[in-house]
C-alpha cells in the first residue's frame, strides 16, 4: 500500500504565507489508502478531504451538520464531516464516495439509486449513498425506519420517494 501526503495533492499552498500557524501531523486511512497529513488546527475533516486531497464527492452544503451532503463513514459509521475537526481523527479509517464501487462495478446501493432514479441534480447523492450504506448496517426494520434513518440527508430536488425506494430494495424491505 502506498502512502500519500497532502503536499502531494495540494502542493505547498501556504508556502508564501509569512504567518506561522500550527500544523498537526496525523495519519489517516482514506478509502483504503494511507495518508500522512499535516493539517491546520481549524480544518474540518471535510476541508481536508476536499481541499487537501481533492476528493470532492463529499459536499460542503450547509457546513453546519444539517444537510448531510458532507456525510462520510468513519469505521463504517456515518458522520457529518463538516462538524469533525480533522486533527481529532488521527488514525481514523475514512470512507468517502470515491471509495465506494467503481464505474464498471457499482455498489448495490449505487445501482439501486440509478434504477430508481433516486436523484436529480446529484449534489446530495454521495452523502445519501454513504448514509444509506451505513443505515443498512443498523438493520432498519421498516420503510418508516428507513425514512427516519435518512432524516440527516436533505435533497433539495425532492427525490425522497425514489431514494427511500432504492434503499428499501437493497435492504429487502
Amino acid at each position: 500500500m502506498s502512502t500519500h501526503t497532502n503536499t502531494d495533492a495540494a502542493g505547498s499552498r501556504n508556502a508564501g504565507n509569512p504567518i506561522v500557524e500550527q500544523r498537526i501531523a496525523l495519519a489517516m486511512t482514506i478509502n483504503g489508502e494511507r495518508y500522512d497529513l499535516k493539517v491546520m488546527p481549524t480544518a474540518t475533516l471535510l476541508d481536508v478531504i476536499r481541499d487537501e486531497l481533492g476528493l470532492t464527492g463529499a459536499k460542503k452544503g450547509c457546513d453546519m451538520g444539517g444537510c448531510g451532503a458532507c456525510t462520510v463513514l468513519v469505521a463504517g459509521r456515518r458522520i457529518a464531516s463538516c462538524l469533525a475537526l480533522a486533527a481529532s481523527f488521527s488514525e481514523a479509517d475514512v470512507t468517502t464516495i470515491e471509495g465506494v464501487g467503481s464505474a464498471d462495478r457499482l455498489h448495490p446501493m449505487q445501482a439501486a439509486f440509478m434504477r430508481h432514479d433516486a436523484l436529480q441534480c446529484g449534489y446530495c447523492t454521495p452523502g445519501q449513498i454513504l448514509s444509506a450504506i451505513a443505515l443498512l448496517s443498523e438493520n432498519p426494520r421498516s420503510i418508516e425506519e428507513i425514512r427516519e434513518g435518512m432524516s440527516g440527508n436533505l435533497c433539495r430536488c425532492g427525490a425522497y420517494t425514489n431514494i427511500i425506494a432504492a434503499i428499501a430494495e437493497v435492504a429487502g424491505r
Binding site: T71, R78, L83, S151, G152
Partner: peptide, 9 residues
Amino acid sequence: SASAQVRNM
C-alpha cells in the same frame, strides 16, 4: 435527537 450522523458523533 438530531440525525444519525450527529448521534454517531
